[in-house]
Design a protein around this nucleic acid. Structure first.
Length: 838
RNA sequence: GCGAGAGUGGCGGAACUGGCAGACGCGCAGGCCUUAGAAGCCUGUGGGGUGACCCGUGCGGGUUCGAUUCCCGCCUCUCGCACCA
């Protein structure tokens, strides 16, 4: 044994050992139940940061723990290798992504390995390899067959810096989520996935998931199901034209005093008087410009609008009311028009105030309360209440009136129930090079309208062509692939005539939507993965990653799983049963780490100074997994000291006990107390790991180490107790600080002759219930709820005896003698409370 | 505005289904070891009085023998969504 704790020599040695013995291979325990533990697919930037350390530490503790619990554990890792940063770098520096990416992967992988993460590397995948992305193309074609992919002309977010289309979800406050440039609006054709078809299933599926509430709430919000009524407002002086509006508050229809439509509503364009048309068109353009300037507090924008001159009839009051166009009505949601009820909707209220439109109060807080005065009111009454001035519906509560009015509208054939979602279809076209080519061709002969012809399955993969970076990746103009003429121009598979390939590539969220299933059959070349492998491993038991993916990746990958289930590839409909979202690791200054702030702590530096075990321990100990945490140089010193203490504890005892046959059952006195502490610690750490409370699990271990430190064995029983304690410490520590644990384990004389004798596979220790149970317990004694003393009694003592023991205590007598004891509360093993009068 | 979460020592944080608030760690103070330091070890450490006493988990109420925990009403902070009718 070395005389000092020296992780630099210890850690690489054990990492080699694990690799040579191939101990993290999944599928090697055929009869055992499985656990699939996965950290989110990393983008291989050249440098690992502390956030990665946290994700992998969490996933690894769970993997190592479950391996020792006898599970066949799958913990793979791969690379989200396609994407914008590599391409942007190529544009700037002229270095081909195909050269840069493998270099980055290599560095990143070394960093992961230097942390001692127990990955099954035989399953490593790289999404930029044709072996992987051909299945993106395969899925695309299957989805095309099922009508889940379609071509649409859509207003899209365009980033002038990345020169690419961004999904709505990738726009943050009007800026590109990756490069931060201001996003513009453009209209171009694109391919889209019909995720909206799954909106309800995505909503319902959330119920059975063991996910953080916050993420579930964000998804619910994002999907945004809204149940209401579509109802028609017929246009006055027209036989057939009517404005269809969507409302969730049919109960307020008697208060609808105008209709508000989106500025480019088709019916407005059609029906507006000629004199108004130019004005309306100008207004529509103004609103479009304003919408483009999102991020400048668009929500706070002043209400604006124009009276179109069109008049419609409120179908319930039969009143003639105006149609206005308004900047706050969205063309893309519902019907693009709403019935405006100023008394009961805040937006309509503000609008009506500004343009002096009538405000009619038709829902009262209660039947008697008619205090609402349109002239003086500062805001709308938007709660449910009781209807007033609403014809035969007056007096009904809102909930009932909603249904009754909807039913009446339906009976009259002017309305129908309708459901709207905030969720939009997922546009996947990217005008980029470094991504999966979309397997579509255009042939003027076979497909004159340009819908696109699917590439036949046997021609997959459509391989990304090699390119001259300087010529193709200019960052300007048309999609890069369109410039690669030798690739773009091919023969049509149907007619043999000239055809052209689709030059767009797929959003990289496609890769991360199903990669977790590719790990199951990473080398399969007939299918994306095998059904038998899916049946063995899916769903992911614990998925670990950042909460920033709550509505992007985590929604797409649930969608994709449902599609895979429909294709018969798997029986599961949800990809991940449990989700752990880890908090951010902030810099020394409490700010989020970033290069520009110069507060980045490099994992490499930490590992080389303190070792991987210290880094892992610190990041798990300093805060609960889901909370943000601050980097602390002092705390990491503390963890390093703790490992040093563990080392010295073994150093002090190993020689004495190594190789001896010892019997812990002989332990008595202090040694017996050590045994109790050992077994209680086993029980606690086990429970804390099940609950993902890594920080308290580590502090339980610290307590045990503190208890054992300084104990000098004097006889056989003592030695038995200390061996048991040391073995337990090595075992319990092994998921957290695996290298030191191995070192200590071998110090105790253990060498593995067989695979199942390896520490990483050896069964997790078992807590003996006879030893975790307390024999005597300290009971708190209160008088009138205030702590006044303590008594020690047998854990088995009857309530009666506990009460007497407490009452007999001299300190307590001082508080209760001479007073009337009105009541005594006895909670066995916990406390006694005397309630006394004065 | 809506949704979710959080407010506990100087700091990070503990406290199972209401039952000894502050585990564990950091920091700090004193001591040991040392020629000195580094490392390490020991003791103490919520506040106030300093006797076995009082006060303390954001604030104000409530339920209870007993509340960090449950209920009601506020305040502050973080995150997400934000004109979705």
């Amino acid at each position: 044994m070395q005389d000092r704790y020296d992780p630099k020599s210890v850690e690489p040695r054990w990492q080699r050992h694990w690799e040579e013995k191939d101990l993290f291979r999944a599928g090697a325990r055929a009869g055992a139940p499985k656990k699939y533990i996965l950290a989110m697919l990393p983008y291989p930037s050249g440098e690992m940061h502390m956030g990665h350390v946290r994700v992998y530490a969490i996933a690894d503790v769970l993997s190592r723990y479950n391996r020792k619990r006898g599970y066949d554990v799958l913990q793979p890792l791969g690379w989200d290798a396609f994407g914008l940063p590599a391409e942007n770098a190529a544009i700037k520096e002229g270095l081909h992504p195909r050269i840069r990416t493998p270099k980055n992967i290599k560095t990143f992988k070394e960093d992961v390995q230097s942390l001692g993460i127990s990955i099954d590397w035989t399953r490593e995948i790289d999404t930029s390899e044709p072996e992987f992305y051909r299945w993106n193309q395969w899925f695309f074609l299957r989805m095309l067959e099922r009508g889940l992919v379609y071509r649409r002309r859509a207003k899209v977010n365009f980033c002038p810096s990345c020169n690419t289309v961004l999904a709505n979800e990738q726009v943050e406050e009007g800026f590109c989520w990756r490069c931060g440039s201001k996003v513009e609006e453009r209209e171009i054709p694109e391919w889209a996935f019909r995720i909206t078809k799954y909106a309800d299933r995505l909503l319902e599926g959330l119920d059975g998931l063991d996910w953080p509430e916050r993420v579930v709430a964000m998804q619910r919000n994002w999907i945004g199901r809204s149940d209401g009524l579509e109802i028609e407002f017929p246009v006055v002086k027209s036989k057939s034209d009517r404005f269809r509006v969507f409302t969730t508050r049919a109960d307020t229809i008697y208060g609808a005093t105008y209709v508000a439509a989106a500025p480019d509503h088709p019916l407005v364009q059609k029906l507006a008087p000629a004199a108004k048309k130019a004005e309306i068109a100008a207004f529509a353009e103004k609103v479009r410009v304003a919408a483009r300037a999102v991020g400048e507090g668009a929500a706070a924008a002043e209400k604006e609008g124009i009276d179109t001159g069109i008049r419609v009839k409120n179908p319930f009051t039969s009143e003639t009311i105006p149609v206005w166009v308004a900047n706050f009505v969205l063309a893309g949601y519902g019907t693009g028009a709403v019935m405006a009820v100023p008394a009961h909707d805040q937006r309509d209220f503000e609008f009506a105030k500004k343009f002096e439109l009538p405000i009619r109060f038709v829902v009262r807080p209660s039947e008697e309360d008619d205090s609402f005065d349109p002239a003086t009111a500062q805001k709308a009454f938007t709660e449910y209440g009781v209807l007033a001035d609403s014809g035969s519906f007056s007096g009904l509560p809102s909930e009932q009136a909603r249904l009754a009015i909807a039913a009446e509208a339906q009976r009259r054939g002017i309305g129908s129930p309708a459901v709207n979602f905030h969720l939009r279809d997922w546009g996947i076209s990217r005008q980029r090079y470094w991504g999966t080519p979309i397997p579509i061709l255009y042939c003027a002969n076979c497909d004159p309208e340009g819908h696109g012809i699917p590439v036949p399955d046997e021609d997959l993969p459509v391989v990304l062509p090699d390119i001259d970076v300087k010529e193709v990746l200019t960052g300007k103009g048309e999609p890069p692939l369109a410039k690669v003429t030798s690739w773009v121009n091919i023969h049509c598979p149907r007619c043999g005539g000239p055809a052209r390939r689709e030059a767009e590539t797929m959003d990289t969220f496609v890769d991360s939507s199903w990669y977790f299933a590719r790990y199951l059959s990473p080398h399969e070349d007939k299918a994306p993965f095998l059904r038998e492998d899916a049946d063995r491993w899916l769903a992911i038991d614990t998925y670990v990653g950042g909460p920033e993916h709550a509505v992007l990746h985590l929604l797409y990958f649930r969608f994709w799983t449902k599609v895979m289930a429909e294709l018969g590839l798997t029986a599961v409909h949800e990809p991940a049963q449990r989700l752990v979202t880890q908090g951010i690791v902030k810099g020394r200054d409490g700010e989020k780490m970033s290069k520009s702030k110069g507060n980045v702590v490099s994992p490499r530096d930490i590992i080389s100074e303190y070792g991987a075990d210290t880094a892992r321990l610190f990041i798990l100990f300093a805060a609960p997994a889901e909370k943000d945490m601050d980097w602390s140089d002092e705390q990491i010193e503390g963890q390093h000291r703790f490992l040093g203490r563990v080392f010295r504890l073994f150093q002090a005892n190993a020689d004495k006990v190594r190789g001896k046959t010892v019997h812990a059952s002989f332990a008595q006195g202090e040694a017996l107390e050590i045994r109790r502490k050992t077994h209680r610690t086993i029980a606690r750490v086990t429970q804390q790991l099940e609950r993902l409370q890594f920080n308290t699990a580590i502090s339980s271990l610290m307590e045990l180490v503190n208890t054992v430190t300084g104990f000098v064995p004097k006889n056989e029983g003592d030695e038995g107790a200390i061996v048991e304690a040391l073995e337990s410490i090595a075992q319990l520590l092994s998921p957290f600080a695996p290298h030191l644990a191995e070192e200590m384990w071998s110090e105790l004389g253990h060498t593995a002759r067989r695979r199942d004798e390896e520490l990483v596979l050896r069964p997790w220790p078992h807590a003996d219930p006879a030893l975790t149970a307390e024999e005597t317990v300290n009971i708190a004694v209160q008088v009138n709820g205030k702590l006044r003393g303590q008594v020690s009694v047998s854990a088995m003592a009857a309530e009666e005896d506990i009460r007497e023991a407490a009452a007999a205590d001299p300190k307590i007598r001082g508080w209760i003698d001479g007073k009337t004891v009105k009541k005594v509360v006895v909670i066995p093993k916990r406390l006694v409370n005397f309630v006394v009068g004065t």
